[in-house]
Amino acid sequence: MHFTKIVNGTKTEIHLCEKCAQEKGEMFSFDWGKSFSFDNLLSGLFNFDPAIQIFKQEAAPNPDVLRCNHCGMTFNQFLNTSRFGCPHCYEAFQHQLVPILRRLHGGNIAHEGKIPARIGGAIYTKKKLAQLKEALQAAVEREEFEKAAELRDQIRALESSSLGKGGEQ
């Protein structure tokens, strides 16, 4: 069995008899494929993104200029490993991330799902308020005044309860 591995233009050839290949492969065959293909494909995808290429050209004299202050990871490092160093990297690379996220998530760049109950309490209220206000606007436009009044009461209740909480903290 012959394997050829090409990483950054460096070619490595491995020749194994079928038995050794089976031994070697079966030991932990599952991960070979994964680390080899998935990460490489992912970082390839990032590196070939036109927006990222423009960024790289502009930053060329000093490619490591964009860096996360918390963990020290540079944007280049991220492009090569496709893994962030810490939660703050998302903030540090936020502008460069937009095209990447769009590409990975079918054009979406915002979370529409669960909000953690404890730490997300304030965010939850804010999102809920925004939703209610939108509904209120729509109700007014459709001249559904009874519903609008109901929504307005809900908004007031939510606003006063979140103000109360803010005062306690």
């Binding site: 939660p87 990447i100 979406n108 979370h111 799902g113 669960k114 953690p116 804010k126």
Partner: peptide, 29 residues
């Protein structure tokens, strides 16, 4: 289980991006 864990530990969560993960393929939910 997620709720139970979250009541005792602070998760890395962002208002717009959701749950922050090591790989950008998992960020959000």
């Amino acid at each position: 289980l997620d709720d139970l864990l979250e009541s005792w530990v602070d998760y890395a969560f962002d208002e717009t991006l959701g749950y922050l993960t090591s790989c950008p393929t998992n960020v959000g939910t």
